[in-house]
Simulated assay, not measured.
Amino acid sequence: MTFVVGESDTAAALGSGSLPVLATPRLLAWCEAATCAALEPALDDGRTSVGTRISLEHSAASPVGAEVIVTADPTHRDGRLHRFRVSGRHTDGKLVATGEVTRVVVDTDRFLARLG
């Protein structure tokens, strides 16, 4: 997935710092979006996935206007549990972030019923 850093994606806008560069929370959300997209084709109707564990190293700054390519590669599956290696790179190949996201497949209705 490719994202373009906008003003609303910056650390200053999200309150995770004061600089006009890509905020770590936004980068994390983009990594989660990539894992959702990677897992979506394998989900049966009425099923979704929820994030349960995240580890992310944000290693380089991305200014407003930068394009960030985020990938999610499956590394482990055990029943409903799916683990992905995630990374973000600028279009010139510069590494922005690496990490791991774990998601668990759940029945949507049963999951939401437990909240009530």
Rank of each mutant, 00 (worst) to 15 (best):
A11R: 03
S16W: 12
L115R: 07
E7F: 03
A61W: 03
V101S: 01
H90M: 14
G46P: 05
R53G: 02
T35G: 03
A60S: 09
I54Q: 12
F84K: 10
T91R: 15
V105D: 01
D78H: 11
T10C: 07
E40L: 07
S55Q: 11
R114H: 05
D109T: 14
V50S: 01
R47P: 00
R103S: 07
L56F: 04
T71M: 11
P74Q: 10
A97M: 03
L22N: 06
H58W: 06
R103Q: 11
A12F: 03
V70R: 08
I69T: 15
V96K: 03
V50W: 10
V86G: 00
R110Y: 04
H76G: 06
P74M: 08
A34W: 14
P63W: 05
D107K: 03
C36H: 09
E40S: 12
R89S: 13
T98E: 10
L81H: 13
L22W: 06
T71W: 03
C36V: 13
T91D: 15
D78Y: 09
L56N: 10
A34H: 08
T10R: 08
A37Y: 01
D73Q: 12
R85W: 05
H76T: 08
R77Y: 02
P20E: 09
R83G: 06
R83T: 14
T71V: 12
G51M: 07
A38H: 01
C31F: 01
R47G: 00
H76W: 09
R26L: 04
D9T: 01
